[in-house]
């Protein structure tokens, strides 16, 4: 069976820089609001990092900087060897290597699930339509939506839409997958179907950064948990350590709030 072109979405690329995402003293302001303060962080290939924190902590802004949806004001951010903010960096090309899953899914309402998934591969990577569609169908089957290939987003539930969104990002065979609160807009009974897909992606070796409050997911697949508060990284550590023995008052306070639902 021919290898689907979306299968090696998770293969490592030999000869790459060891660290795939590098923040060095990154700062960002929204007007007078200091949203990211001296953020320094490294993410290794195949690593799964969960970012959590209270509202306004800057966690969404953090990952939105990685694919250039937000720009940093000072410091250095190097992703896949490319420096963000450098005019020489080819942003569209860099973005093809980074998959982004939004809280609001942002599926194209005027296109079917399959068309959503294949739009970028066909027009950006110039994959022939037949090849892209075959890969797209396989990916949609992988996320459990083989029968919804021709459905429009308005005909899908929230959980289904988000899974299509994940398939859409995966079909570009990115090196990094970013998730911005992927389950926050979902009804509770649909959260697990999306988390299951994300776990499968992680287990295939994808480098992932996930902003979420779903601590079960963190415990299952994350190598590290990054806790942010008011723009700074307050604590970083393996999940078991972070949950059982938080080192700072702020992380303790945060954990007590979210673990008591």
């Amino acid at each position: 069976m021919p290898k689907s072109s979306c299968d090696d979405a998770t293969a490592t690329h030999p000869g790459r820089h060891q660290t795939v995402i590098e923040f060095r003293g990154v700062n960002k302001w929204f007007g007078p609001l200091h949203v990211l303060r001296e953020v320094t962080l490294d993410v290794q290939p195949k690593e799964v990092v969960v970012v959590c924190g209270p509202s306004g902590s800057g966690k969404s802004t953090l990952i939105r900087c990685i694919n250039g949806l937000e720009t940093i004001k000072s410091g250095d951010l190097v992703v896949d060897g490319q420096r963000l903010g450098d005019p020489a960096t080819d942003m569209p090309r860099l973005r093809t290597e980074i998959g982004f899953v939004f809280q609001q899914f942002n599926l194209y309402p005027h296109k079917t699930a399959l068309q959503n998934v294949t739009l970028a591969p066909i027009h950006v990577r110039r994959t022939p339509r037949a090849e892209a569609e075959q890969a797209g169908r396989e990916l949609l089957a992988k996320v459990g939506l083989a029968d919804k290939v021709d459905a429009y987003p308005s005909q899908l539930s929230g959980g289904q839409q988000q899974r299509v969104a994940i398939a859409r990002s995966l079909c570009m065979r990115p090196k990094i997958m970013l998730f911005d609160e992927p389950t926050s807009a979902l009804d509770p009974e649909m959260i697990s179907e999306v988390l299951d897909v994300m776990v499968a992606v992680a287990e295939e070796g994808m480098t992932m950064m996930v902003v979420t409050h779903e601590m079960g997911f963190a415990r299952k697949v994350a190598q590290r948990v990054v806790f942010m508060d008011q723009g700074s990284i307050v604590e970083i550590g393996p999940p078991e350590e972070f949950f059982s023995d938080p080192k700072t008052d702020r992380s303790r306070a945060f954990l007590s709030k979210i673990l008591h639902h």
Partner: peptide, 20 residues
């Protein structure tokens, strides 16, 4: 959000305009 999704997939400005 639509523009951001198209942007995040690496579509060029003209492709974004035309398809999304």
């Amino acid at each position: 959000g639509q523009v951001e999704a198209a942007l995040a997939s690496g579509l060029s400005r003209w492709q974004r305009m035309r398809h999304v």
